[in-house]
Design a protein around this nucleic acid. Structure first.
Lengths: 149, 149
DNA sequence: CCACTATAGATAGATAGCCTATCTATCTCA
DNA sequence: TGAGATAGATAGGCTATCTATCTATAGTGG
């Protein structure tokens, strides 16, 4: 089993499990918008551009999502005091609630499946931790590559 | 850390890593269509309805995807000899090639990140195996629930 | 202070991905 | 053979995205 096979297997399973959970949870908001709420939650008051980068999506896409979320009261926007061009997006109380609901809904779908596996809890925790490390590693501009200044 | 938190963490990481890989790999085909190719590959000559169920999508959605893939030569369809209403979808050589390419492209994106983690290979393998078990468990109609005939 | 260039965000137009509702053809079986 | 079930196709509509482009504000060297 090569590393490439391992990566392929990991990606296939990750895609399936995520899709499955989304489709088996009754979400109040479309998945893409839930994703944005999650990013706003993490990044605090953030610019549209920063959110787009974090979401691996284009700036126009993020602009549209933020506009819809704002129109529906899930996020609010204030002008950036330091930059007249920019705005800072934050969660409203409704947004925080909706995000919590969405997370619980997806987790509720997966929980019985996890329980049914009857796997060693430590093994499960370790796998989840590893996945998180992997996500974290995708964020930093690959430390393996030598910087050429 | 409750099981629900664990499930939530797992889902968040799974969604991110999968999205990240898709967006950092140059795919010849849109992701949804690649997904369908993957299912056709797994399920062999399969009906549209079976593919839709396996993909957690609706039958009309799958009909449309299969039509596009067929028009572009990635899959072929023959009438089901046992059922005049049904058809059986299979990969063409071009479809198999495109699927292989897509998998390699996504794996290539993730591989350096995995390598950069410098994690214990056994730990990595185990995590991937666990994810696969989890996906498998979502397929069976939850063995926990008692059958009411 | 001014023209230049870079950056933040918005707009336009197009395609893909999906859904629900509905329609047709075919199967099954009493 | 006629009723109900099932396979798949159509219609219509909304969301998610992209690329290209536009506006307005910042920062910068003269």
């Amino acid at each position: 089993m090569t590393t490439a096979d391992l990566a392929d297997d990991l990606l296939r399973s990750a895609a399936r499990i995520s899709r499955w959970a989304s489709r088996h949870a009754a979400l109040e908001l479309p998945w893409a918008q839930t994703r944005v709420l999650s990013l706003v939650d993490e990044l605090g008051p953030a610019r549209v551009t920063a959110l787009a980068a974090a979401d691996d999506s284009s700036q126009p896409t993020m602009t549209a999502q933020v506009q819809r979320l704002e129109a529906e009261g899930y996020v609010s926007r204030v002008p950036d005091p330091d930059d007249g061009r920019a705005g800072l997006v934050s969660l409203t109380a409704a947004g925080a609630r909706a995000l919590g609901e969405a997370r619980r809904a997806r987790a509720r779908a997966l929980e019985p499946v996890m329980a049914g596996l009857d796997a060693d809890p430590a093994r499960l925790r370790d796998a989840v931790a590893l996945l998180a490390e992997l996500v974290e590693a995708t964020r930093s501009p690959s430390p393996a590559l030598p910087r050429t200044p």
